[in-house]
Design a protein around this nucleic acid. Structure first.
Lengths: 245, 245
DNA sequence: CCTTCCGTTAGGCTC
DNA sequence: GAGCCTAGCGGAAGG
């Protein structure tokens, strides 16, 4: 298939808002927030219906070059080479692929309106703890979630322990950082100002960054190991039960 | 083409370490660090020679599901549906794509050994400043780069100004945050402890986040606007000169 | 519109 | 191998 035919096929795909795949030998140039060059090699160029562009090498999960949605795409033939340019304005960026050889061109209208559902977000972890408060400790009683803490933000879970002490719980789905500890302490102080009693501070997360350990200890913040994984299981179990209710 | 033929073609591609593209209607399930499901829809499944797997919807720059390199891939036909599973062990994760319809299967051995060159990283910015110290100010003399600052980390550039004052320069290729300012101040204090003289603190970046401005002013940290773009130009100029030396 | 924060972050580098 | 930081981060949520 000659280059002009290929260019026409790509243009037709663009007009029809299809997903276009070009396989072949190309050089790639990017200029924008940074700039990069990539010498000749065989790769995949993918143009999506929304104007996203991806260049994938034969190895590695990440694209070597790309352009986000809404890029303007131009296709042409110049000195016997197929040239695909994707431009966007803010920020001003250009991605240019120059093909010296094309092994294949595919273009498909893809219909995909399905919903993507991801489990065990931080929100899910909160639901799991509310459903199973022993994740924090025996006798813990959640009272409020997303309680306003003055102008410091929102407390993930606010409750009392078995001895009636107030408890502020901060949830993270990743290892807690010193910034997270500081945030939790701001909540503690806000509650103390408001209610006149200093609450216990508990961070519920899969772990604590080494660099945050000192801050944790020195401010008497307690740590509970709670992983998104385990929370997802608890929620799944809960959903299983719901079916019988 | 029947499903068994398609499965065979994919298996052959896997054996030959080719890059495989399957276009068709599929459901996708992921279970691992998190878990997700994606209902039926037409998408792209890409398997690379190193065992990376990508699922791309017709819109958006990012894959909706993926598996990093070194995943073990199994292909089979089950109840009239093509099933592709990619597993990895650490962490334990499974990505499963179940096709109800296949529009196309491509498999290519791609040869790509070209070098990828990215310009104006933070490292490049440092080289540009060392090459052209007036980017910081007239009379600035860099003395060391990557100088150890006690246990606080490494100072990007350590030097003296025209009046003999010590200068600590912190470089960022993006707008400076308050965390960056704090880091710089830790260096300042480390130098003061070590040498008994308090150095000037300069942050060299394209800008400063609004929220970091107060910290900048109150701690007398100075700001110099230095962009990756401009640094790339300086390096390019420098390389041009090198050719004549 | 801007800023801030999260991600199955990935990937690189140091200890 | 584990911890830590950067990214052309992208994307979402909040102001």
């Amino acid at each position: 298939m000659d280059l002009n035919k290929i260019a026409e096929k790509i243009k037709a795909g663009l007009r029809a808002k299809e997903v276009i795949i070009v396989v072949g030998s190309m050089e790639v140039f990017y200029e924008g927030r940074a700039s990069s060059t990539l010498g000749a090699g065989e790769r995949l160029l993918i143009i999506k219906e929304d104007g996203s562009v991806l260049v994938h090498r034969p190895r590695g999960y990440e694209p070597v070059n790309w352009q986000p949605p809404d890029s303007k795409i131009e296709v042409g033939v110049d000195e016997g080479r197929l040239v695909v340019e994707a431009r966007r304005v803010r920020p001003r960026e250009v991605l240019k692929a120059v093909f010296t050889d094309v092994k294949a061109v595919l273009s498909f209208k893809l219909h995909d309106e399905a919903e993507f559902a991801m489990y065990a977000t931080e929100e899910d972890m909160k639901r799991a703890i509310l459903m199973e408060p022993t994740l924090i400790e025996d006798g813990f009683k959640p009272m409020e979630s997303e309680r306003r803490a003055g102008d410091s933000g929102f407390i993930d879970i606010f409750g009392v322990d078995r001895e009636g002490n107030l408890v502020v719980v901060e949830i993270k789905r990743r290892n807690a950082t010193s910034e997270d500890i500081r945030q939790l302490l701001r909540y503690v102080e806000s509650v103390e100002r408001e209610l006149g009693r200093r609450p216990r501070a508990i961070i519920a997360a899969p772990g604590v960054q080494r660099s945050a350990m000192r801050e944790l200890a020195s401010h008497r913040v307690e740590f509970r190991c709670v992983t998104p994984r385990r929370c997802a299981e608890i929620l799944k179990r809960g959903q299983g039960l719901e079916r019988f209710l």
